[in-house]
């Protein structure tokens, strides 16, 4: 689904991705270069607090 995440509503969200398996590096798509993803929940929550935007948290299995 990663390449499909091109929505206007994303601009209103703080984005956090958590890989269920971290053994492999995650490929960076073109979309990732546009969107800024956090990889730490506490820091994402802090960014959410400061910006007033809600969090969009994704768990995905990276095989």
């Amino acid at each position: 689904m990663q390449h499909r995440l091109c929505f206007a509503p994303l601009n209103g969200l703080i984005l956090l991705v958590s890989a269920c398996v971290l053994a492999l590096p995650m490929p960076a798509s073109a979309q990732d270069k546009v969107l800024r993803w956090h990889d730490n929940l506490d820091r994402a929550a802090q960014a959410s607090r400061e910006s007033g935007k809600p969090l969009f948290v994704v768990f995905r299995c990276v095989r």
């Binding site: 689904m1 969200l13 269920c20 929940l41 929550a45 802090q46 959410s48 607090r49 809600p54 969090l55 969009f56 948290v57 994704v58 768990f59 995905r60 299995c61």
Partner: peptide, 18 residues
Amino acid sequence: FEFDYDTTWQAFFLDANL
């Protein structure tokens, strides 16, 4: 973060207090 743990992709929407 309760979800169907057999799935490979899941998203949540939360506020800053989780």
